[in-house]
Amino acid sequence: MWLPFLGLLLGFLIGQTLTFTVPANFAPYFSVAILATLDSTLGGVTAVMKEKYDAAILMTGFFINSTVSAFLVLLGDWIGVDLYYVAVFVFGVRIFQNIAIIRRELVSKYLSNNIKNSQSTTHEVQ
């Protein structure tokens, strides 16, 4: 259960020990990619909660979403459309949605038996 969070901590420590830093020019694309991966992982957690987990979906979402989103922002820069804020907005909304679902699942599982699993959907945000 706590293994993924251990992985998060471990990854953070590895990043801190590395001397490599992202070039400052790539920082915006990198931050969008991070938002995409955060969205994917939270989606994975949601899927685990709902017992609909698929490893292939998580892995493809994780890597392809991050690279594609970063590339889209880069493309937007090339053609003069600031897609950076669009990506931030979309991923931000999705992340909050996922967090809300996780919260509801946790509440229904551990705190209250009144709320049925079937009542929560991906579109319910409270």
Partner: peptide, 10 residues
């Protein structure tokens, strides 16, 4: 996935 996320974050 979480490990990669932590790495990217840091």
């Amino acid at each position: 996935a979480f490990l990669c996320l932590g790495l990217l974050f840091s």
